[in-house]
């Protein structure tokens, strides 16, 4: 077993997640009220609270599903508009995506208000490249005469885009397939890089090499960390340090164990 999977496990246990051998961890992120819990329920057969108002899910719920003989542990996160801000739910969601090291993060988007929803998707794609987009509520979008070029969107974003109507059970098999492909590493994804204004890009260029010196790079995307330095999210940076020491401490212990 590789060193990285040991440290992954430590971090996950920190979030109350105990995975079995070879079990993949899937995070379910998205704006409030886009149907995350509906997707979760459809995949796991569980009964998380759903309803048409933002903010129903306030804590991480876990469930399991199997696909092609692989077991997946899926975590239903609270809905968030962003993973930059500082409310409790946003922190729960953000910390899990950053430090819980999910094998795949499904970002559920509301097809009827893509612009707002993409804000979050683009943020998540800066943290991790293993993203699958679940473009939900396509039935509502059809009703509103909104037509979306799915293939174009997929090409643009560089990650799989699966159109679904979770409540009607449409598209969920495709979603599982993409999660399987990305989660087991069969499909390599190349998320679109968000372009920033020149002044920000300049500042980033100066900061990124230094972050690489810090040695955080193999753990988190340096560009993303540099952005957090720029918007002054001190709390997050302390959080990174804390989680890193958690990880480091544990790998040290396990090395000792192996030596003995």
């Amino acid at each position: 077993m590789g060193d990285s999977s040991v440290s992954h496990r430590v971090l996950r246990e920190h979030f109350g997640i105990n995975t079995k051998e070879n079990q993949k961890v899937i995070a379910l992120a998205g704006n409030p009220n886009v149907g995350k819990s509906t997707v979760f329920n459809a995949l796991t057969g569980l009964r998380q609270h759903t309803g048409n108002w933002p903010g129903k899910t306030v804590d991480n719920a876990q469930g399991i599903f199997t696909y092609k003989n692989n077991s997946f542990l899926i975590v239903d996160l609270p809905g968030t508009y962003s993973i930059l801000a500082r409310t409790v739910e946003e922190e729960i969601a953000r910390d899990f995506i950053c430090f819980g090291q999910p094998d795949v993060t499904i970002v559920v988007l509301d097809a009827t208000s893509l612009e707002r929803n993409l804000n979050l998707a683009l943020q998540v794609m800066e943290i991790t490249s293993r993203v699958v987009i679940c473009l939900n509520l396509i039935d509502e979008a059809k009703k509103k005469n909104i037509s979306i070029d799915y293939a174009g969107l997929e090409q643009e974003l560089g990650v799989p885009v699966v159109p679904t109507a979770a409540r009607e059970g449409i598209g969920l098999e495709d979603l599982k397939e993409e999660v399987y492909q990305v989660g087991l590493g069969f499909k390599k994804v190349q998320p679109r890089k968000t372009h920033y204004s020149p002044e920000i890009e300049e500042a980033l260029a100066a900061l990124i090499p230094k972050i690489q010196d810090l040695g955080w790079g193999e753990f988190l995307n340096p560009r993303w960390i540099a952005l957090r330095f720029l918007d002054g999210d001190e709390k997050l940076i302390d959080n990174i340090v804390r989680h890193l020491s958690l990880k480091a401490g544990q790998s040290l212990n396990s090395e000792v164990e192996i030596a003995l």
Partner: peptide
Amino acid sequence: GLLRRRIMDLG
């Protein structure tokens, strides 16, 4: 503060 962030995140 928080409100500014929240409102900007809403677009």
